[in-house]
Design a protein around this nucleic acid. Structure first.
Lengths: 232, 232
DNA sequence: CAGCGGGTGTGACGCACGGCACAACGCTGG
DNA sequence: CCAGCGTTGTGCCGTGCGTCACACCCGCTG
């Protein structure tokens, strides 16, 4: 089924495209719906095309050298993914998995390269996206390198929390499971549970349905830099 | 002082450039020599230009949220660095420090953007470089996420070792100090020392001047995936 | 309603490793 | 040749947290 042009215009790579090109893409692209947990790109896939995320949320997941899962980054609606293989022709470095029901479109390799490199606007969009990913990767490393598990969990919570709609409060919308958090910050599920219990007990965070709301962001920040925690 | 054209042609961003452009750059660029430990780009610098590494080796260093140093990546001769600020205009996300005596050239922001985006070849070079950095960043994360310090040190050694000239042996040329390794893999200097002692004792690696040679790469690999180590 | 599976909460145990303290080495420069 | 500093080697101590084991809760489906 074709994809409506207004939707295509909402995608970062395509928002500068002239109308005729958009129309052509609209006719030839087709959309795929994926459910939570479904795999969109497999680790090691070579020659895959470029993915465009129309709606939903994806996560990139990879593995340590000893086989344990490591969460790495997220893909939000409007972003594209799978660029690395398109750029350098190497196999995909990680899995891409849906964390929420999503709609994606795949663009074959040759047309993707053409969009990415033939115009300065396309090139700039690609560079901007890669730069964004690198910066996030760096901050994620800064989290991973924190000495204690407690700090890492707090840091990850702080990173996941986004300003909520109404007041200025922070909230983690549909919080990940403890297991998923553990994977992101390289610790055990039990430690995540214990950390969360600690924070709930001190009213630093609170549960609200499937969301987690941050009541005292400043304490969370102190927890990250070590000046606040279980052992005094 | 002007930079000879053959040297400019050895740089990844410039190797496709037509002769007249090269000549102009040769006249206007000037080279700076830096010593080991000298800072080339400061964390937080905004509006900095693009750096070109003519000779030597640089390292990017950043800090955890609680203020500890984290080694992140290396820049080798021919690579450029400081792209992120040029691309997105944000402050530099990390320090860039020389780990060996080096020669660098700085290119101002506007001319860098022109080189990077005005031609498909330039755009492809930039994308390729960013893709390379992202892939390395991902493998570094895979190292950081290993459960035990011992494994992380071994993994880092394996990553640093490159095929040596003569035979097929692996060698770490001018090995980093234990402290530097500790920073890269998020552990303590003492643990690095102990791990290295362990490996030296079992003849897995050996010292040769300032180099470290890997005598038994297969054991090193087993050490990484946990099937070989101090506690059996 | 029972039965099930995925997620969460909690206790107990053991050990790897971070931190400290100090000794020993190997340079560089005076 | 000695002083001084950066790096390496090692013992010891305390503890954070990974792991195992098990109970509980909730939302399914039949």
């Amino acid at each position: 089924m074709p994809i409506p042009i207004p939707i295509l215009q909402g995608l970062k790579l395509l928002d500068q495209l002239p109308a005729p090109r958009l129309e052509e893409l609209s006719r030839t692209l087709s959309e795929r719906r994926v459910q939570r947990r479904e795999v969109v790109v497999k680790l090691g896939d070579a020659g895959g095309g470029l993915g465009l995320l129309i709606e939903g949320r994806l996560q990139t997941v990879s593995f340590t050298l000893d086989g344990k899962e490591v969460g790495t980054d997220f893909v939000d609606a409007g972003d594209f993914f799978g660029e690395l293989s398109v750029i350098d022709g190497q196999p995909a470095p990680e899995y891409v998995i849906a964390v929420a029901p999503s709609r994606v479109a795949m663009l074959d390799r040759d047309r993707a390269r053409e969009l990415m490199f033939s115009t300065p606007a396309g090139a700039a969009a690609v560079a901007a996206r890669l730069a964004e990913r690198l910066r996030r990767s760096a901050t994620h490393k800064a989290v991973l390198a924190l000495p204690s598990s407690f700090q890492r969990v707090c840091a990850q919570l702080a990173a996941l929390a986004r300003p909520a709609g109404s007041d200025g409060g922070l909230r983690v919308h549909v919080a990940p499971t403890h297991q998923e958090i553990a994977i992101m910050v390289n610790t055990s599920r039990e430690t995540v549970t214990r950390t969360l219990q600690f924070l709930l007990g001190l009213q630093v965070v609170a549960r609200e349905g499937h969301d987690l709301i941050v009541l005292r962001p400043e304490l969370l920040r102190q927890a990250v830099d070590g000046s606040f925690g279980p052992t005094r």
